[in-house]
């Protein structure tokens, strides 16, 4: 599934060619077909995707280049593609704590799902401006679609659930105003453990640009893999959005993350 196909608004299913001698196609092989169900365009441009354990797909809207195809009032709406019907529809509209506007055209920017607890975390930066961080991280129970908790005044993009060095479940979140990644424990009931917030690392000064923000966060064993990109609360789009993958390793002695490599 892709939300970044040129000339395709919304979400697309990309079929890659399977080369002779290979058991499966991969992202490096040419695209054979791009499929879009008619409903997949209706929300305008979309950004991050996540999946639940039933195979349903969740996506969040984010304007690209212009506001022509995204309605401001829908920028805090999570969309779901039903695993059985393939149809996309509004899944939940999260409350606005500030409205997107001319100085910040964005609402939702991050989404992730925890399969074990069926908790979804969604981050919105709606209403934030240069001097006021008004973003919210919503924790939702996927079964009931209810908001179980919120963290206010946090503008975030990359989100990921993972266990920390002590086995506690944390939500890791990349800030959009700085290159910092923070984390906070999430209880089994899907609520924040408020005094557990901590700074994990910063991307400041690293990579070819030096001012990257964490767009995606993934974990692989003791590694945190961060996709970093520029983000300045505008609709700037270049032909290729330069992105750098940073790999950090947890250093048990120092109790901190160390940069292993970036590419």
């Amino acid at each position: 599934m892709s939300t970044s196909e040129k000339k395709a608004i919304g979400i697309s299913l990309v079929v890659f060619e399977k080369k002779a001698g290979e058991t499966a196609p991969n992202l490096q092989t040419p695209k054979q077909e791009i499929y879009q169900h008619p409903s997949w365009k209706e929300a305008g441009y979309l950004s991050t995707i996540t999946f639940d354990r039933e195979g349903n797909v969740y996506a969040i809207p984010a304007p690209l280049i212009s506001m022509l195809y995204n309605k401001t009032e829908k920028l805090n709406t999570v969309y779901q593609i039903d695993a059985k019907t393939g149809e996309m529809s509004e899944w939940v509209s999260l409350p606005f704590y500030g409205k997107p506007g001319v100085t910040n055209p964005f609402g939702l920017l991050g989404i992730t799902y925890d399969c074990l607890q069926q908790t979804m975390a969604v981050g919105s930066v709606a209403g934030s401006d240069r001097y006021n961080e008004r973003g919210v991280i919503y924790l939702l129970d996927v079964r009931s679609k209810k908001i179980t908790d919120t963290l206010r005044n946090a503008d975030v993009m990359g989100l990921s659930f993972a266990l920390d060095e002590k086995g506690n479940k944390r939500l890791y979140f990349g800030k959009t105003r700085t290159g910092e990644i923070y984390s906070m424990q999430v209880s089994k009931s899907g609520k924040w453990i408020r005094n557990s917030k901590r700074k994990e690392l910063t991307l400041e000064g690293y990579g070819p640009r030096g001012d990257d923000k964490a767009r995606k966060i993934k974990f692989n064993g003791n590694q945190m893999i961060v996709s970093g990109t520029a983000f300045n609360y505008n609709l700037q789009a270049s032909s290729e959005k330069p992105e750098t993958i940073y790999t950090f390793i947890w250093l048990p002695k120092e109790q901190k993350w160390g940069l292993n490599q970036y590419q």
Binding site: I65, M67, V102, T103, P105, N234, L235, Q236
Partner: peptide, 22 residues
């Protein structure tokens, strides 16, 4: 060359804006 291919660019401030070209 391509029907419907192109962009609508707003120009403006480099941060906290709706500008696509800054």
């Amino acid at each position: 060359g391509t029907d419907g291919f192109g962009y609508s660019d707003a120009v403006g401030c480099p941060i906290y804006s709706q500008a696509a070209v800054v």
